[in-house]
Amino acid sequence: MKIDTEYIKLDSFLKAVAAVGSGGEAKIRIAGGEVRVNGERELRRGRKLRPGDRVELAGRTYDVE
């Protein structure tokens, strides 16, 4: 997904790419350790993603552009 700002927060990114249905679901999945950013488990909803980052959830990979 291409972003038009310097960064996007992880929970907002998951909603934007339709990896989750709501912010609440994003919170639960992140807190549950289901999300990886650049290969590392990420537990912070507010993690700032920038172009070049890669997010993984439920066997799918999403690139930040």
Rank of each mutant, 00 (worst) to 15 (best):
K9W: 04
V64M: 05
D4T: 12
R36I: 06
A58G: 09
K15W: 04
D11P: 02
G59I: 06
A26T: 09
R41L: 14
D11Q: 03
V35Q: 02
G52L: 03
R36W: 01
E40G: 04
G52S: 03
R36M: 11
E25W: 05
V64W: 01
S12N: 12
R29V: 15
E56L: 09
L49Y: 04
P51V: 00
G46I: 02
G32N: 07
I28S: 13
A19I: 00
M1A: 13
R36C: 10
T5A: 13
F13T: 01
L14N: 00
I28C: 04
N38A: 07
I28D: 03
A18C: 09
T5V: 08
E6D: 15
V20P: 00
K15M: 11
F13I: 09
G39D: 01
R54L: 12
R41C: 07
G52A: 07
G59Y: 08
P51D: 04
A31E: 14
R36F: 09
T61G: 09
D4L: 11
G24R: 07
V55W: 02
R44L: 11
I28E: 11
V17T: 11
L49C: 04
L43C: 03
M1H: 12
A19P: 00
F13G: 02
L14C: 02
Y7R: 03
D63A: 15
G23Y: 10
D4M: 09
V17Y: 02
R45L: 15
E40W: 07
L57R: 02
I3W: 00
G21E: 15
L57Y: 13
M1V: 13
R50V: 14
G46Y: 01
I28L: 14
K15F: 09
V55M: 04
T61M: 12
D53M: 09
L49G: 03
Y62S: 07
E25S: 08
K2T: 11
R47A: 10
L57C: 05
A19R: 00
G39N: 05
V35L: 10
I3H: 04
D53K: 14
G24W: 06
D11N: 13
A18G: 07
T5C: 05
L43S: 09
L57N: 07
P51G: 07
A58N: 15
K9D: 11
E34A: 08
V55R: 01
L10H: 03
I30A: 03
K48W: 00
L10A: 10
V55G: 02
E34V: 01
I8Y: 07
R41W: 04
D11A: 08
I30F: 06
D4R: 13
V17H: 03
K27L: 06
A58H: 10
V35R: 00
E65H: 10
G32K: 06
K48A: 12
